[in-house]
Design a binder for these strands. Structure first.
Length: 258
DNA sequence: GGGCAAATACTG
DNA sequence: CAGTAT
DNA sequence: GCCC
């Protein structure tokens, strides 16, 4: 079982806990999911090499989560998650991915309308059933419809493995531009998401304009989508969209977090 | 044991 | 204003 | 739940 899948299980648990207003645990599970997702080594390998103890070395993973990880790695399942899912068999990943839809909303949608999937939700929203729900209204329903349309169109994302070498090379090229002191890959690539919609680069330079201008003229750039004083968005020859932002020394660290 | 991110924007 | 989501 |  891949790290991303394990992380998904933990995220589901976090969402289920959130629905019941359980304090703090959800954050703990989310933090763990994040740590797992961005861990460079496959967890099953970590487990084979060092057992539960090795899993516990990962920050955010304590006794309880290490046990659940062991269960997931050896059996492929997680009892706790299955119990929750049995009580509420919803596609949490997809539903929760919708902007404006969180655990609480999923719960209400399921309990009152039996919504389990995106298709269910779309049908309900189109039928005007969502607006009458507690905590929802006309606006909420419209927002959901909009979010639904968005995920359906912006579907094509690129696997990280494909983007990685391309973006690394581009980053190196940018780093060679005179005046550019440092370049880091940011965004979803830095966070090691499975797939990326676009790439984000962060550059450190004294004169942002010059760096931006030079970047826009790199050979790999097919066309410039937008260009400002400190940032620039381009489409590469291979179709990948790249956003670059140039910041001064003092904000580099903070900017990297985003 | 006791604390755990903070701030903001919507919506009802 | 309070609750919820980001 | 995790961490200190």
């Amino acid at each position: 079982m891949r790290n991303a899948e394990v992380a998904r299980v933990f995220r589901d648990i976090a969402a289920y806990l959130d629905m019941d207003d359980v304090p703090f645990k959800p954050r703990a599970y989310e933090k763990a999911a994040q740590a797992i997702e961005s861990h460079d080594r496959p967890l099953d390998a970590v487990y084979r090499a060092g057992g539960v103890k090795a899993l516990r070395e990962i920050p955010g993973i304590g006794t309880s989560m290490a046990e659940k990880l062991e269960e997931l790695i050896t059996t492929g399942k997680c009892k706790l998650r299955e119990e929750y899912h049995h009580r509420m068999p919803v596609d949490l990943a997809a539903l929760t991915a919708l902007e404006g839809v969180g655990p609480k909303a999923v719960k209400v949608l399921y309990e009152r309308l039996g919504v389990r999937t995106l298709a269910d939700l779309e049908a309900a929203a189109r039928a005007g059933k969502v607006r009458d729900l507690p905590h929802f209204g006309e606006k909420s329903e419209q927002k959901i419809l909009k979010a639904l349309a968005f995920v359906q169109t912006s579907g094509q994302r690129t696997p990280l493995a494909v983007v990685r070498p391309v973006i690394d090379e581009l980053a190196a090229a940018l780093a060679r531009v005179p005046g550019v002191a440092r370049v880091e890959v940011a965004g979803s690539i830095r966070r090691r998401k499975e797939t990326v919609g676009d790439a984000d680069l962060l550059a450190l330079a004294r004169t942002a304009e010059a760096a931006i201008a030079a970047f826009a003229q790199l050979p790999a750039v097919a066309r410039v989508l937008g260009q400002g004083d400190t940032k620039c968005s381009v489409k590469l020859q291979d179709g990948l969209q790249v956003d670059v932002r140039v910041v001064p020394e003092e904000s580099f660290g903070a900017a990297l977090l985003y």
